[in-house]
């Protein structure tokens, strides 16, 4: 097998495996822009992943599975947003609660539904552009042979970016995180904007969890997110809450993760623990190096009590 084929496989794997993480991180970037720090991504992804897997297995339709995953994410996002804004619940505690409940709840449901079986999906989403870019060495097939939802995910990232920076609603959303009092002063409804942002974030987490289960893995197992929800928070911050930057950093993280696999195949004499550490060290270094000039939304993580509370 040629080096080119291995490189193609590693890049293709990086694009595919970083996709669920990318969706989750972009969703978090949108929520944080509105002032909501959601640490419940892990739980949301697991719930969406389980629902998605269950329905895909029942109906043999990946599309339906992805949609139910998004619906579950939306529902959890709405609950999170409502509790964090209407009841002013502590966002950190609330998010961790969602993660704990999602982790335990999906493990319980999985056992109840499947017992000790581990069903696997066969097939998976199609590859509509297979072979189209084979003229471009290494990268061409790595991109062209992806499953259709990978392209949808990148389209969602682009749409999220345009929504944030080019639309009046996006401006309101950013104002809710930057200057909620200012938003209310010009007639905006901070509570509704934040609930909306939580819902949009929830849809991204839901698609991310569902994509992990039915597009990337082809199965669901309890805890299969393996900390992706928390990585998403770090990557959102690394990308300075800009969806496009977040997506690119996530892809870079995926490529770094693949580096250790490539080095192992090449027989490089290094401890695998060290190689595995590289992408995470990259995040830490990136946060330190790039994070110095970063200013997070002023109202991030803070409850909003309305203009009257300021008097």
């Amino acid at each position: 097998m040629s080096v080119e084929a291995i490189a193609t496989a590693l890049i293709a794997a990086a694009i595919l495996t970083s996709m669920p993480l990318m969706l989750a991180a972009v969703g978090e970037a949108i929520a944080e822009r509105a002032g909501l720090l959601n640490l419940g991504i892990e739980g949301s992804m697991l719930c969406a992943g389980f629902a998605s897997f269950w329905l895909t297995l029942k109906t043999d339709s990946v599309t339906l599975g992805l949609l139910i995953g998004a619906a579950v994410g939306l529902a959890i996002g709405l609950v999170f947003g409502t509790l964090a804004t209407v009841l002013n619940a502590n966002q950190v505690v609330l998010g961790l609660g969602v993660t704990l409940a999602g982790t335990g709840g999906t493990a319980f449901l999985f056992r109840e539904v499947y017992g000790s079986d581990q069903p696997l999906l066969s097939g998976g989403p199609g590859r509509p552009f297979e072979g189209w870019f084979d003229w471009l060495p290494v990268i061409g097939p790595a991109i062209g042979d992806q499953r259709w939802f990978v392209f949808v995910a990148w389209f969602m990232v682009l749409a999220g970016h345009l929504f944030l920076v080019r639309t009046p609603s996006g401006l309101q959303l950013r104002a809710a995180g930057e200057s909620p009092f200012g938003l209310e002063a010009v007639g905006g409804n901070v509570t509704m904007v934040r609930i909306g942002a939580a819902a949009i974030g929830g849809v991204f987490y839901g698609f991310g969890g569902a994509a992990l289960a039915v597009v990337e893995l082809g199965f669901f197992s309890p805890g299969s997110t393996a900390g992706a929800g928390f990585l998403a928070v770090a990557l959102a911050m690394l990308g300075r809450l800009s969806p496009l930057r977040v997506a690119l950093f996530t892809l870079a993280f995926g490529l770094l993760t693949g580096l250790d696999i490539g080095l192992q195949i090449a027989g490089v004499d290094a401890r695998p623990e060290f190689l595995r550490m590289l992408p995470y060290a990259g995040i830490v270094i990136g946060l330190v190096a790039l994070g110095r000039g970063v200013r997070m939304p002023r109202a991030l993580g803070q409850a909003y009590g309305g203009i009257s509370s300021r008097r």
Binding site: T8, A13, S224, Q264, E273, R276
Partner: peptide, 24 residues
């Protein structure tokens, strides 16, 4: 190939590592 340290339930990375081994 080693997936990771105590990565006993890390199915996503296991899949990725195995795909690369097959590619090799």
């Amino acid at each position: 190939q080693v997936i990771g340290e105590a990565a006993y339930d890390d199915a996503p990375n296991a899949k990725r590592v195995t795909e690369s081994a097959i590619a090799a």
